[in-house]
Design a protein around this nucleic acid. Structure first.
Lengths: 257, 257
DNA sequence: GCAATAGTGTCTGTAAGACAGTATATT
DNA sequence: AATATACTGTCTTACAGACACTATTGC
């Protein structure tokens, strides 16, 4: 169900749950860079996470999926709930008050408008190949772009804290579950998956030990095929062994204890 | 702030956030038994988790602490947020409808009363020494008692699922952070802490390896003192090394990888 | 002496982690 | 030839996990 913006602002709680939002930390990986997708509302200098409300006929996870799909155009994502945030003042910010919001959007808004009440936010994170994504905004957004992790702009509310918690959760996740299926081409090289892990964890791994261990888990298989990468020795290609991969997704494993 | 029940029922959203609840899975340990504290509303045969609403001037964690304190009389607890639950139908149960609730409590209640709307629940778990606890109910409760994990009664809503998720989270937690400080006397024996771990994880550990490893972590220290336990060899006493313990609490460690 | 529990040391196998030189492809 | 990247094997060390007998206490 698509809800009109006007109806939402005027009569929100009729369509969505009041006092609850979902915020998504959308991580994007591409060629040794890890980024986060952020948006900036009109007339505001601070940036914020893509977020939204929970429709009355959907689950919180579906709400997060809808938000991510709206911003990235992608569905069938890796999407994990990691933590909920609820302190009475977390959504008070002098940068974005009801009065300012009303002025910028040329509307009338009560000081106690439901959108500016105490909100509990349920945090999800997602991880995508960012070259596949065409970031797209919405009526009230001025920009929506990728930012390098570790070089973030000034953020609204407690969104800085949410991003940090998401990154921590993502890194913990990686030690227990395989990743890469959504991020790498079907056939990839050892150096590629090696860089993926190093970038996300912000660590270096010895290439000999890394390959040894990853192959030992059984989640990747070597092909009898190489990729031509120009002026250097051609690397072998690998694919995920989906049976082992999915089993590790379900049961977990210990990588790099 | 103490809110009167009547005001809450009639005018809830004025005092608390609508559509949000906190539910607490309160685990109790005592002499090799792991239990969960459950309550049963008047006139209902199914049991449920202690839960409550979030006051407009408190954080979600404070709300959970308040709930736990009301049921157990304990504060200064080990209390962790683990997951939020939100599906539109999760709080529909033929066992507890608005009509039934109204009838049992002899009041009038609209079919669309705010208490029976779509609720997103934020799950917390806590772990206490259950002999310290005097379970106490509230106006609408008929019973509030401990149930053995693995021998639970029929539960309202999705509370069975919430308990399972909490137990999983607790067990994961134990592999990464020390426990025991809230659960054991100041001076305790190796067999005591050994039983604690075995009970919570529902596993057995070789006593020689267990002691070796736990001491190696530095979180416990052997005293030159024994406990007299009657007709058997007197065991040595240990205390937690609070400096190492707290450090492990903050940074985590790997126990029994 | 019996019953019940506490306490303790060694060995083996596995795997993590350190480490550097050779091979290949292009210009 | 020069350059840039891919590829590979061995050694050491640490720790997990298996394993069983002796010590103590009260009755």
């Amino acid at each position: 169900m698509k809800i009109e913006i006007k109806d939402l602002i005027q009569d929100g709680p009729k369509y969505v749950l009041p006092n609850i939002s979902v915020d998504s930390v959308i991580f994007g990986y591409h060629e040794k860079e890890l980024k986060v997708l952020l948006q900036r509302p009109q007339g505001i200098s601070k940036w914020m996470l893509p977020g939204g409300y929970v429709h009355r006929d959907e689950t919180i996870k579906q709400a997060a999926e809808r938000v991510v799909k709206n911003r990235t155009g992608l569905d069938r994502l890796f999407l994990n709930q990691f933590q909920s945030f609820g302190t009475p003042t977390r959504t008070k910010d002098s940068e974005l008050t009801p009065a300012l919001f009303a002025e910028i959007n040329q509307m009338e808004l009560d000081e106690n408008h439901w959108m500016f009440d105490y909100f509990v936010s349920i945090g999800f994170y997602s991880l995508t190949e960012f070259s596949k994504v065409v970031p797209s905004g919405e009526f009230y957004l001025e920009e929506c772009t990728w930012w390098n992790i570790g070089d973030l702009p000034s953020l609204l509310y407690d969104h800085q804290e949410i991003i940090e918690a998401a990154l921590k959760a993502l890194r913990l996740h990686i030690y227990h579950y395989p990743i890469g299926y959504e991020l790498l081409p079907e056939k990839f090289t050892l150096p590629e998956i090696h860089s993926l892990y190093e970038t996300i964890l912000d660590k270096t791994f010895d290439s000999r030990n890394f390959g040894k261990k990853l192959i030992a888990t059984g989640i990747i298989k070597k092909l009898d095929e190489r990729r031509n990468i120009g002026a250097h020795r051609a690397p072998f290609l690998y694919v995920f062994d989906m049976e082992n991969y999915n089993q590790a997704l379900e049961n977990g494993y210990a990588l790099f204890v």
